[in-house]
Design a protein around this nucleic acid. Structure first.
Length: 865
RNA sequence: GCGGGCGUGGCGGAAUGGUAGACGCCGGGGACUUAAAAUCCCCUGAGCUUUGCUCGUGCGGGUUCGAGUCCCGCCGCCCGUACCA
């Protein structure tokens, strides 16, 4: 029992930081926050030492795009990472917790167009502002490793890596489709296409082909897929999404003989339904379609297919259109002539750009067949007896597992879907007209962007030598500063001198590549640059090996596929060419939810559109919602993601100025589970600010002269040490917060004792990763005198974790009838006897014969009658 | 369209198949105060014939002694959909 009171008496010790702090009734975050932020910076508390003998831990949050100001969503993201980083440090790890800037991208160019500023200047200014904001929240970041992807030192190394991948054959050029704005004469991002029109010009967008740079991510498709299986600490949903995105499928590729003497190779994942085929369809940009374009009608149809943007959601929800050619395709088994269509829903990128249409068992084909009055045949049924059942207005997938059986299909009749697939493939292969083939949904990564504010692609186009990489000693290819954005299009393209260079090979006049790299390339290796930053190389492989993989990677679920897949690919590609040894960059991934807020609006009668008001303009104190300006009622809208257009954003600066960093951090961790959305509320943040003061009062109640013990409280403290640690490790911050509230309440209510002092000091350490400023301030007064950020997580006594009494639920037929207290570990017989003795239970049973008694030790007894 | 997720009091949420609603917010009552703020204490899912009982985890079924949790079928909302980052 004595060990529970084994905390040091500690009251009048004053260490390095102790004398600086005067006792106060209230905790003053405005003074304390800055004091401790300076103390950490001066002491280099969070500077990672790669030569430390301690085990390493790399904690990383997805670095921000410097859009202007820190968003409350950033605060949530970085608070979670910060708690982990500080906790890991308390657990004895050498922690790397860096921060940088994903600084290239379209918003900077938009700002340049709208405000006439330079994208670089605008970006740098935003970075300075956002860095100051992050520092004001007290994040335990190693700022010595900060960089921005728009630093030539960073993108120069990226250019070198890109050239290395080119040399290794992982980079190539090919034609691909972009959104083209025919009025602004420029390429549009999908985001810039709204309802099929350019966002500035309002012109109807067209698809246009352009020669572009690609990375061979498909070479790694199998490996990326297989690697998912080993990522145990990734959310199941993200692994599933990536798996579906990669989309490995086994199917049959075979050729139809065409009536014009040609052949039509098609790919299908459902060869079992081949007897249900009633037409064939090819993409508008399929060679056969192009060959028919001499006909004006065909040309017009192909032209019509070009309308609209390239978004998958748009393409696939568009009305299905087909053009029936004069050509027919001969069915390989029946010899039937099937009509050949050009169709807007067939994609040239997937398979062979041609499909066999099986309307009965594919929904798209069903709609198409209905529209063009093609036969819809049943070849899969739940039962052979139902081979001629009609369809109920939609296709029946008849997938495996549904117990489907093949019907109306000659030699396949009676087989399962799976067996029939194999049978058709076997037959096609033995007869030589087709073969089994694995096809991936994943496409190669197009990295060309026709924009200024990105990493210049380090290549030169020479009429004699073709595509020539810029020699390594001429890197970085730096963006020119003197550019203008007053007209649409890529300023690099129209810059007077920048693109005119001599060919590095033959010396004749040549042109610099004016495309820049997708910003996803920048974010595909930044975590390696954080680990080590030599001037002459992108990274030092030995240093990378020390820190990687990232132990916890935290960011929004919106990155579940693209960013995370590209980063996994880039890391593998670098390993493939021998630059690093690590294959998977992120050992554990956590995807956090958004911060949301309700909206306030009124309908503008004249225009019939809602006008939104910001939270500061609205008074919500009286239960309703009124506009402060005119006291009129405003409508309270759904709780949605914060966005400028809905004016439902809250500014972290204003909140920190009011309540301090710790209250904001605590709010970010409280209530909502971190993977779910967090609704912002003023009442919530005020509650957190109150709790900060409540803790402050408690911390001042350490009594150096206290004597005696309080075993129940000590037990709670020991249990909390273990539980909070487990919760933090599982990123269950909301649960950790709840446990701290419970222990705090218990400590407040208890009488002074050695154990109470212990409980208070325990709380101080448990909150240290979450509310580091008040923790330092209190620790300076009641702790060892050193920084609490440098202290270790408290030890616990295993003997104190178990209660000696438990509450047993007594049920009749699964319904609660009574509860009793029993010693922990009581025997089944004893529990049974206790249950049967319950008057409430007896009344419920009412003399009925007992058929069964279920006893769950330390939990419940259920009487079954 | 396709892929993925989520749905529990007035609100955010908790709950290895085992006492649904821990903890926080809001609200109500009380203490302290000349008063207010701050603080502290108590109550707070709905209903009823209130020693206790019934209902209740988006909707409809099912498995089980026992289902928020597992299975089947729906509904709603959110995220991604390859040039937003």
């Amino acid at each position: 029992m004595t060990e529970t009171g084994s905390e040091s008496s500690g009251g009048d010790e004053r260490g390095r930081f102790g004398s600086a702090v005067a006792p106060a009734d209230r905790f003053d975050p405005q003074k304390a926050d800055l004091r401790w932020q300076r103390a950490w910076a001066d002491a280099g508390t969070f500077t990672a030492d790669s030569d430390s003998p301690k085990p390493k831990s790399y904690i990383l949050e997805m670095f921000p795009y410097p859009s202007g100001r820190i968003h409350i969503g950033h605060v949530r993201n970085y608070t979670m990472g910060d708690v982990l980083a500080r906790y890991q440090k308390m657990r004895g790890f050498e922690v790397l917790h860096p921060m940088g800037w994903d600084a290239f991208g379209m918003p900077a160019e938009n700002a340049a167009m709208e405000k006439g500023v330079h994208p670089g200047g605008w970006t740098r200014q935003n970075i300075a502002q956002m860095k100051a904001q992050l520092q004001r929240i007290g994040f335990a970041l190693d700022w010595t490793r900060e960089f921005a992807t728009c630093d030539p030192e960073y993108y120069g190394h990226e250019q070198a890596l890109f050239a290395d991948l080119y040399e290794a054959g992982l980079v190539y050029r090919k034609e691909s489709t972009v959104n083209w704005d025919p009025v602004d004469m420029t390429v549009l991002a999908n985001e810039q296409v709204i309802d099929g029109r350019g966002w500035r010009s309002g012109a109807e967008v067209e698809k246009r082909k352009l020669n572009q740079w690609f990375l061979k991510i498909t070479d790694f498709a199998d490996d990326l897929l297989e690697g998912l299986g080993k990522l145990e600490d990734w959310p199941e949903k993200v692994r599933l999404m990536q798996e579906n995105w990669i989309g490995k499928s086994q199917g049959l590729e075979f050729s139809f003989d065409l009536s014009d003497g040609g052949k039509l190779p098609v790919y299908t994942t459902r060869p079992d339904t081949i007897f249900g085929a009633s037409f064939c369809a090819i993409a508008a940009d399929h060679p056969i379609a192009q060959g028919l374009a001499g006909d004006a009608q065909v040309a017009a149809f192909i032209e019509a297919c070009k309308r609209g943007g390239t978004k998958a959601a748009e393409v696939e929800t568009a009305e299905k259109l087909g053009y029936r050619t004069a050509i027919t395709a001969k069915h390989p088994f029946t010899g039937e002539p099937l009509p050949l269509f050009i169709a807007n829903f067939v994609l040239m990128e997937y398979g062979t750009g041609a499909v066999m249409g099986v309307p009965g068992h594919d929904q798209r084909d069903f709609e198409f067949a209905t529209k063009y009055e093609l036969p819809i045949m049943r070849v899969v049924a739940t039962d052979p007896a139902r081979a001629d059942d009609p369809f109920k207005g939609e296709a029946e997938a008849g997938a495996q597992g549904d117990g489907g059986v093949i019907v109306n299909s000659d030699f396949l009749d009676g087989m399962t879907v799976e067996d029939a697939k194999q049978a058709v493939i076997t037959r096609a292969e033995s007869e030589g007209w087709g073969e089994g083939r694995t096809v991936w949904r994943l496409r190669d990564w197009g990295v060309s962007r026709q924009r200024y504010w990105g990493t210049p692609i380090p290549f030169i186009h020479c009429d004699t030598c073709g595509v020539v990489p810029v020699p390594k000693d001429q890197l970085p290819v730096v963006l020119p500063e003197d550019v203008t954005f007053d007209i649409p299009g890529n300023p690099l393209e129209r810059h007077p001198t920048w693109k005119h260079v001599d060919c590095p090979k033959c010396g004749s006049a040549a042109r610099r590549e004016t495309d820049t790299l997708d910003t996803f390339v920048d974010s595909s290796w930044y975590f390696l640059r954080f680990a080590s930053q030599p001037a002459d190389r992108p990274f030092d492989p030995a240093e990378v090996a020390k820190w990687l993989p990232v132990q916890h990677y935290i960011g929004g679920v919106e990155h579940a596929i693209l960013h995370l897949l590209y980063a996994r690919f880039w890391t593998r590609a670098l390993a493939h060419i021998g630059k690093i040894t690590v294959q998977e960059p992120f050992a554990a991934l956590f995807t956090q939810g958004m911060v949301t807020h309700e909206t306030y609006s009124r309908t503008d009668e004249a225009r019939g559109v809602p006008v939104f008001f910001s939270p500061e303009e609205v008074d919500r104190t009286s239960g309703g919602a009124t506009l402060i300006a005119d006291h009129g009622v405003v409508e309270v809208g759904r709780v949605i993601k914060m966005s400028k257009s809905k004016k439902n954003v809250v500014d972290p600066d204003a909140i920190i100025a009011r309540h301090g960093a710790d209250a904001v951090r605590w709010f970010m961790l409280s209530d909502s589970p971190p993977e779910r959305d967090l609704p912002w509320s003023d009442a919530g943040i005020e509650g957190c600010a109150r709790f900060v003061q409540r803790l402050w009062r408690l911390f001042n109640q350490i009594q150096p002269a206290a004597i005696g013990y309080d075993k129940p409280l000590a037990r709670k403290a020991h249990q909390a040490i273990v539980a909070v640690a487990q919760d933090i490790e599982a990123l269950g911050f909301n649960k950790a917060v709840a446990r701290i509230y419970e222990l705090t309440a218990a400590a407040e209510k208890s009488e002074p004792s050695l154990d109470r002092n212990f409980a208070i000091r325990t709380i101080l350490h448990l909150i240290a990763p979450m509310m580091p400023h008040i923790a330092e301030e209190a620790h300076a007064r009641i702790g060892t005198g050193d920084l609490i950020a440098d202290e270790l997580w408290p030890d616990h006594d295993p003997a104190m974790l178990v209660d000696d009494e438990v509450t047993i639920a007594i049920q009749h037929m699964g319904k609660l009838r009574d509860t009793v207290t029993a010693p922990k570990g009581a025997s089944k017989d004893a529990l049974e006897a206790l249950a049967l003795a319950s008057a409430n239970l007896q009344r419920s049973v009412d003399g009925a014969a007992i058929r069964k008694i279920i006893v769950v030790p330390d939990r419940l007894v259920n009487i079954v009658t």
